[in-house]
Protein backbone atom coordinates (compact mmCIF):
# COMPACT_ATOMS: atom_id res chain seq x y z
CA UNK A 1 0.00 0.00 0.00
CA UNK A 2 2.74 2.42 0.97
CA UNK A 3 4.54 1.53 -2.17
CA UNK A 4 1.41 2.26 -4.20
CA UNK A 5 0.98 5.65 -2.52
CA UNK A 6 4.59 6.51 -3.16
CA UNK A 7 4.18 5.56 -6.76
CA UNK A 8 1.08 7.75 -7.02
CA UNK A 9 2.93 10.75 -5.58
CA UNK A 10 5.68 10.31 -8.10
CA UNK A 11 3.13 10.11 -10.84
CA UNK A 12 1.17 13.20 -9.84
CA UNK A 13 4.10 15.57 -9.20
CA UNK A 14 5.37 15.66 -12.76
CA UNK A 15 1.78 16.10 -13.95
CA UNK A 16 1.49 19.46 -12.18
CA UNK A 17 4.83 20.53 -13.58
CA UNK A 18 3.81 19.20 -16.96
CA UNK A 19 0.76 21.49 -16.99
CA UNK A 20 3.01 24.54 -16.70
CA UNK A 21 5.36 23.08 -19.28
CA UNK A 22 2.45 22.47 -21.63
CA UNK A 23 1.26 26.06 -21.42
CA UNK A 24 4.79 27.32 -22.06
CA UNK A 25 5.17 24.94 -24.96
CA UNK A 26 1.92 26.09 -26.56
CA UNK A 27 2.99 29.71 -26.16
CA UNK A 28 6.29 28.92 -27.84
CA UNK A 29 4.61 27.09 -30.72
CA UNK A 30 2.07 29.85 -31.29
CA UNK A 31 4.52 32.76 -31.03
CA UNK A 32 7.59 31.23 -32.63
CA UNK A 33 6.25 28.61 -35.01
CA UNK A 34 2.75 29.57 -36.13
CA UNK A 35 2.52 33.38 -36.15
CA UNK A 36 5.83 34.01 -37.97
CA UNK A 37 4.84 31.55 -40.70
CA UNK A 38 1.55 33.26 -41.45
CA UNK A 39 3.20 36.70 -41.25
CA UNK A 40 5.81 35.59 -43.73
CA UNK A 41 3.14 34.12 -46.01
CA UNK A 42 1.13 37.35 -45.99
CA UNK A 43 4.21 39.53 -46.60
CA UNK A 44 5.54 37.47 -49.47
CA UNK A 45 2.09 37.16 -51.05
CA UNK A 46 1.67 40.91 -50.85
CA UNK A 47 5.05 41.32 -52.52
CA UNK A 48 4.04 38.83 -55.21
CA UNK A 49 0.88 40.82 -55.98
CA UNK A 50 2.97 44.02 -56.21
CA UNK A 51 5.47 42.43 -58.59
CA UNK A 52 2.64 41.10 -60.76
CA UNK A 53 1.37 44.66 -61.17
CA UNK A 54 4.78 45.60 -62.58
CA UNK A 55 5.37 42.55 -64.71
CA UNK A 56 2.82 39.89 -65.56
CA UNK A 57 4.82 38.07 -68.25
CA UNK A 58 4.74 34.35 -67.35
CA UNK A 59 8.47 33.94 -67.91
CA UNK A 60 9.57 37.18 -66.22
CA UNK A 61 12.24 36.27 -63.65
CA UNK A 62 11.09 38.73 -60.94
CA UNK A 63 7.56 37.36 -61.12
CA UNK A 64 8.71 33.75 -60.95
CA UNK A 65 11.04 34.53 -58.06
CA UNK A 66 8.31 36.28 -56.08
CA UNK A 67 5.96 33.41 -56.86
CA UNK A 68 8.48 30.84 -55.62
CA UNK A 69 9.09 32.75 -52.40
CA UNK A 70 5.41 33.12 -51.61
CA UNK A 71 4.74 29.46 -52.45
CA UNK A 72 7.65 28.48 -50.17
CA UNK A 73 5.98 30.37 -47.35
CA UNK A 74 2.71 28.56 -47.93
CA UNK A 75 4.33 25.12 -47.90
CA UNK A 76 6.12 25.99 -44.66
CA UNK A 77 2.71 26.75 -43.09
CA UNK A 78 0.61 24.17 -44.91
CA UNK A 79 0.49 21.72 -42.01
CA UNK A 80 -1.33 24.27 -39.84
CA UNK A 81 -4.77 23.40 -41.14
CA UNK A 82 -7.14 24.59 -38.44
CA UNK A 83 -8.81 27.81 -37.35
CA UNK A 84 -8.17 30.78 -39.68
CA UNK A 85 -7.02 28.68 -42.66
CA UNK A 86 -10.28 26.74 -42.62
CA UNK A 87 -12.50 29.82 -42.43
CA UNK A 88 -14.22 30.48 -45.77
CA UNK A 89 -12.17 27.70 -47.42
CA UNK A 90 -9.08 29.90 -47.39
CA UNK A 91 -6.59 27.01 -47.44
CA UNK A 92 -8.35 25.49 -50.43
CA UNK A 93 -8.36 28.86 -52.16
CA UNK A 94 -4.58 28.97 -51.74
CA UNK A 95 -3.86 25.32 -52.41
CA UNK A 96 -6.27 23.30 -54.51
CA UNK A 97 -4.14 20.17 -54.64
CA UNK A 98 -4.12 17.25 -55.20
CA UNK A 99 -6.29 17.89 -58.22
CA UNK A 100 -6.95 14.27 -59.21
CA UNK A 101 -9.32 15.13 -62.06
CA UNK A 102 -7.49 18.12 -63.48
CA UNK A 103 -10.07 20.74 -62.48
CA UNK A 104 -7.45 23.53 -62.29
CA UNK A 105 -6.32 23.49 -65.95
CA UNK A 106 -9.93 22.93 -67.06
CA UNK A 107 -11.29 25.98 -65.21
CA UNK A 108 -8.36 28.17 -66.26
CA UNK A 109 -8.77 27.17 -69.90
CA UNK A 110 -12.47 28.05 -69.68
CA UNK A 111 -11.77 31.45 -68.16
CA UNK A 112 -9.18 32.24 -70.84
CA UNK A 113 -11.31 30.94 -73.71
CA UNK A 114 -14.35 32.93 -72.54
CA UNK A 115 -12.27 35.94 -71.50
CA UNK A 116 -14.48 35.84 -68.45
CA UNK A 117 -14.58 39.39 -66.99
CA UNK A 118 -14.54 37.97 -63.45
CA UNK A 119 -10.75 37.99 -63.75
CA UNK A 120 -10.77 41.79 -63.77
CA UNK A 121 -11.45 42.36 -60.10
CA UNK A 122 -9.73 40.52 -57.24
CA UNK A 123 -12.73 40.75 -54.90
CA UNK A 124 -14.92 39.08 -57.49
CA UNK A 125 -12.28 36.50 -58.34
CA UNK A 126 -12.97 34.94 -54.96
CA UNK A 127 -16.22 33.71 -56.52
CA UNK A 128 -14.65 31.72 -59.36
CA UNK A 129 -14.23 27.97 -59.02
CA UNK A 130 -11.80 27.38 -56.19
CA UNK A 131 -9.72 25.23 -58.57
CA UNK A 132 -8.76 28.37 -60.52
CA UNK A 133 -7.41 30.15 -57.43
CA UNK A 134 -4.20 30.01 -55.47
CA UNK A 135 -0.64 28.87 -55.92
CA UNK A 136 -1.35 25.75 -57.95
CA UNK A 137 -3.51 27.64 -60.47
CA UNK A 138 -0.81 30.28 -60.71
CA UNK A 139 1.71 27.55 -61.46
CA UNK A 140 -0.28 26.67 -64.60
CA UNK A 141 -0.44 30.32 -65.60
CA UNK A 142 3.31 30.74 -65.22
CA UNK A 143 4.76 27.34 -66.14
CA UNK A 144 2.34 25.17 -68.09
CA UNK A 145 3.29 25.28 -71.79
CA UNK A 146 -0.36 25.23 -72.91
CA UNK A 147 -2.11 27.42 -70.31
CA UNK A 148 0.68 30.00 -70.13
CA UNK A 149 0.41 30.70 -73.86
CA UNK A 150 -3.29 30.13 -74.41
CA UNK A 151 -5.63 32.78 -75.83
CA UNK A 152 -5.22 36.49 -75.38
CA UNK A 153 -2.00 37.66 -73.69
CA UNK A 154 -3.63 40.74 -72.18
CA UNK A 155 -6.33 38.65 -70.60
CA UNK A 156 -3.79 36.19 -69.19
CA UNK A 157 -1.82 39.08 -67.78
CA UNK A 158 -4.94 40.32 -66.01
CA UNK A 159 -5.59 36.81 -64.74
CA UNK A 160 -2.10 36.61 -63.21
CA UNK A 161 -2.53 40.00 -61.53
CA UNK A 162 -5.95 39.15 -60.17
CA UNK A 163 -4.96 35.69 -58.96
CA UNK A 164 -1.97 37.14 -57.07
CA UNK A 165 -4.15 39.84 -55.51
CA UNK A 166 -6.61 37.17 -54.47
CA UNK A 167 -3.76 35.18 -52.84
CA UNK A 168 -2.56 38.33 -51.08
CA UNK A 169 -6.05 39.05 -49.73
CA UNK A 170 -6.53 35.48 -48.50
CA UNK A 171 -3.16 35.26 -46.77
CA UNK A 172 -3.64 38.71 -45.19
CA UNK A 173 -6.96 37.55 -43.77
CA UNK A 174 -5.40 34.39 -42.31
CA UNK A 175 -2.55 36.34 -40.72
CA UNK A 176 -4.92 38.98 -39.34
CA UNK A 177 -7.25 36.38 -37.80
CA UNK A 178 -4.36 34.54 -36.21
CA UNK A 179 -2.97 37.71 -34.64
CA UNK A 180 -6.20 39.34 -33.62
CA UNK A 181 -8.19 36.33 -32.54
CA UNK A 182 -7.04 32.77 -32.87
CA UNK A 183 -3.69 32.97 -31.07
CA UNK A 184 -5.53 34.13 -27.96
CA UNK A 185 -7.98 31.25 -28.25
CA UNK A 186 -5.14 28.74 -28.27
CA UNK A 187 -3.29 30.43 -25.45
CA UNK A 188 -6.34 30.70 -23.21
CA UNK A 189 -8.34 27.48 -23.27
CA UNK A 190 -11.59 27.90 -21.35
CA UNK A 191 -14.68 25.77 -20.75
CA UNK A 192 -16.70 27.94 -23.14
CA UNK A 193 -13.84 28.55 -25.57
CA UNK A 194 -12.83 27.01 -28.87
CA UNK A 195 -10.49 24.83 -26.82
CA UNK A 196 -11.94 23.70 -23.53
CA UNK A 197 -8.64 22.61 -22.02
CA UNK A 198 -4.90 22.64 -22.53
CA UNK A 199 -5.21 19.02 -23.60
CA UNK A 200 -7.44 19.98 -26.53
CA UNK A 201 -4.87 22.55 -27.64
CA UNK A 202 -2.12 19.92 -27.45
CA UNK A 203 -4.29 17.56 -29.43
CA UNK A 204 -4.75 20.16 -32.19
CA UNK A 205 -1.01 20.79 -32.43
CA UNK A 206 -0.22 17.10 -32.32
CA UNK A 207 -2.71 16.50 -35.09
CA UNK A 208 -1.06 19.19 -37.21
CA UNK A 209 2.24 17.41 -36.83
CA UNK A 210 0.91 13.94 -37.62
CA UNK A 211 -1.36 14.96 -40.49
CA UNK A 212 1.43 17.13 -41.90
CA UNK A 213 3.75 14.10 -41.89
CA UNK A 214 1.00 11.96 -43.38
CA UNK A 215 0.39 14.43 -46.21
CA UNK A 216 4.07 14.66 -47.07
CA UNK A 217 4.54 10.87 -46.99
CA UNK A 218 1.33 9.78 -48.67
CA UNK A 219 0.63 12.62 -51.05
CA UNK A 220 3.86 14.48 -51.78
CA UNK A 221 6.03 11.34 -51.92
CA UNK A 222 3.87 8.24 -52.50
CA UNK A 223 1.46 9.69 -55.02
CA UNK A 224 3.97 10.16 -57.87
CA UNK A 225 5.34 6.68 -57.21
CA UNK A 226 2.03 5.14 -58.21
CA UNK A 227 2.54 1.40 -58.54
CA UNK A 228 5.74 -0.31 -59.59
CA UNK A 229 4.20 -1.18 -62.95
CA UNK A 230 2.68 2.23 -63.39
CA UNK A 231 4.72 5.05 -61.90
CA UNK A 232 2.99 8.45 -62.05
CA UNK A 233 5.67 11.17 -62.25
CA UNK A 234 3.14 13.78 -63.42
CA UNK A 235 1.31 13.37 -60.14
CA UNK A 236 4.24 14.91 -58.31
CA UNK A 237 3.41 18.18 -56.60
CA UNK A 238 4.22 21.31 -58.60
CA UNK A 239 6.47 19.46 -61.04
CA UNK A 240 5.85 22.04 -63.77
CA UNK A 241 7.80 24.58 -61.77
CA UNK A 242 10.32 21.97 -60.59
CA UNK A 243 9.29 22.33 -56.96
CA UNK A 244 8.32 18.75 -55.98
CA UNK A 245 11.38 17.85 -53.92
CA UNK A 246 11.61 21.39 -52.58
CA UNK A 247 8.13 21.07 -51.08
CA UNK A 248 9.11 17.90 -49.26
CA UNK A 249 12.22 19.66 -47.96
CA UNK A 250 10.28 22.73 -46.80
CA UNK A 251 7.55 20.71 -45.15
CA UNK A 252 10.02 18.46 -43.34
CA UNK A 253 11.91 21.51 -42.07
CA UNK A 254 8.67 23.03 -40.78
CA UNK A 255 7.48 19.79 -39.20
CA UNK A 256 10.91 19.23 -37.64
CA UNK A 257 10.71 22.67 -36.04
CA UNK A 258 7.25 21.90 -34.67
CA UNK A 259 8.25 18.44 -33.40
CA UNK A 260 11.27 19.80 -31.54
CA UNK A 261 9.23 22.54 -29.89
CA UNK A 262 6.60 20.02 -28.84
CA UNK A 263 9.14 17.49 -27.58
CA UNK A 264 11.05 20.20 -25.75
CA UNK A 265 14.38 21.47 -26.98
CA UNK A 266 17.34 19.53 -25.61
CA UNK A 267 15.29 16.50 -24.59
CA UNK A 268 16.17 12.98 -25.66
CA UNK A 269 12.99 12.85 -27.67
CA UNK A 270 13.94 16.05 -29.49
CA UNK A 271 17.25 14.51 -30.50
CA UNK A 272 15.45 11.37 -31.62
CA UNK A 273 13.26 13.56 -33.80
CA UNK A 274 16.30 15.36 -35.20
CA UNK A 275 17.88 12.05 -36.10
CA UNK A 276 14.68 10.76 -37.68
CA UNK A 277 14.13 13.92 -39.73
CA UNK A 278 17.79 14.04 -40.77
CA UNK A 279 17.46 10.54 -42.23
CA UNK A 280 14.96 11.72 -44.85
CA UNK A 281 16.36 15.22 -45.19
CA UNK A 282 19.90 14.10 -46.08
CA UNK A 283 18.65 11.50 -48.54
CA UNK A 284 16.40 14.08 -50.14
CA UNK A 285 19.29 16.53 -50.44
CA UNK A 286 21.39 13.87 -52.20
CA UNK A 287 18.56 12.84 -54.50
CA UNK A 288 19.13 15.52 -57.12
CA UNK A 289 15.72 14.91 -58.68
CA UNK A 290 13.66 18.07 -58.20
CA UNK A 291 10.52 16.73 -59.89
CA UNK A 292 10.70 13.09 -58.75
CA UNK A 293 10.87 12.01 -62.39
CA UNK A 294 13.14 9.22 -61.14
CA UNK A 295 10.07 7.25 -59.98
CA UNK A 296 9.93 5.84 -63.50
CA UNK A 297 13.15 3.87 -63.03
CA UNK A 298 13.73 1.19 -60.41
CA UNK A 299 16.77 2.88 -58.90
CA UNK A 300 15.21 6.34 -58.60
CA UNK A 301 12.01 4.88 -57.28
CA UNK A 302 13.79 3.02 -54.53
CA UNK A 303 15.58 6.17 -53.41
CA UNK A 304 12.29 8.07 -53.13
CA UNK A 305 10.67 5.15 -51.36
CA UNK A 306 13.43 5.20 -48.76
CA UNK A 307 12.73 8.88 -48.09
CA UNK A 308 9.02 8.14 -47.78
CA UNK A 309 9.68 5.29 -45.33
CA UNK A 310 11.83 7.68 -43.32
CA UNK A 311 8.86 10.04 -43.02
CA UNK A 312 6.64 7.13 -41.97
CA UNK A 313 9.19 6.36 -39.26
CA UNK A 314 8.86 9.94 -37.98
CA UNK A 315 5.09 9.42 -37.82
CA UNK A 316 5.61 6.30 -35.74
CA UNK A 317 7.94 8.18 -33.42
CA UNK A 318 5.36 10.94 -32.98
CA UNK A 319 2.57 8.46 -32.34
CA UNK A 320 4.46 6.17 -29.97
CA UNK A 321 6.61 8.66 -28.08
CA UNK A 322 5.38 12.23 -28.40
CA UNK A 323 1.65 11.43 -28.22
CA UNK A 324 1.82 9.58 -24.88
CA UNK A 325 4.15 12.22 -23.46
CA UNK A 326 1.62 14.95 -24.25
CA UNK A 327 -1.26 12.86 -22.96
CA UNK A 328 -2.92 12.75 -26.36
CA UNK A 329 -2.23 9.11 -27.06
CA UNK A 330 -5.85 8.18 -27.56
CA UNK A 331 -6.94 5.16 -29.56
CA UNK A 332 -6.96 5.15 -33.31
CA UNK A 333 -10.53 6.33 -33.72
CA UNK A 334 -9.97 9.77 -32.22
CA UNK A 335 -6.94 10.50 -34.39
CA UNK A 336 -8.08 8.62 -37.45
CA UNK A 337 -11.82 8.14 -37.62
CA UNK A 338 -14.10 7.65 -40.59
Amino acid sequence: MIRILAALTILTLPTALAAQDDAAMVEDVVNSHILPRFEMLAERSDHLADIAQETCEATAPPLRTAYGEAFDAWVAASHLRFGPTEQDDRAFALAFWPDSRGATPKRLAELIADQDPIANIAEEYADVSIAARGFYALEFLLYDPAISTMGDATYRCQLVRTATQDIAATTAAISRDWHEDYAARMLNPAPDGTYRSENEVLRELFKSLTTGLEFTADTRLSRPMGSFDRPRPTRAEAWRSGRSARHVELSLDALNDLAIRMAGEGTDLASEFNTAFAYSQTRLARLDDPTFSGVSAAQGRLRIEVIEQGVQAIRTLARDELGPRLGVAAGFNSMDGD
Binding site: D89, F92, A93, P98, D99, S100, R101, I130, E214, F215, D218, T219, S222, R223, G226, R232, R235
Partner: peptide
Amino acid sequence: THPDSGRVKLNIPT
Protein backbone atom coordinates in the same frame (compact mmCIF):
# COMPACT_ATOMS: atom_id res chain seq x y z
CA THR B 1 -11.76 11.57 -52.55
CA HIS B 2 -9.49 9.78 -54.98
CA PRO B 3 -7.32 6.84 -53.96
CA ASP B 4 -4.28 8.35 -55.63
CA SER B 5 -4.41 11.05 -52.97
CA GLY B 6 -5.39 8.71 -50.13
CA ARG B 7 -7.99 10.19 -47.86
CA VAL B 8 -7.42 13.81 -48.86
CA LYS B 9 -10.77 15.62 -49.20
CA LEU B 10 -10.99 17.17 -52.64
CA ASN B 11 -14.22 19.18 -52.65
CA ILE B 12 -14.96 20.62 -49.21
CA PRO B 13 -15.94 24.05 -50.62
CA THR B 14 -18.62 22.55 -52.85
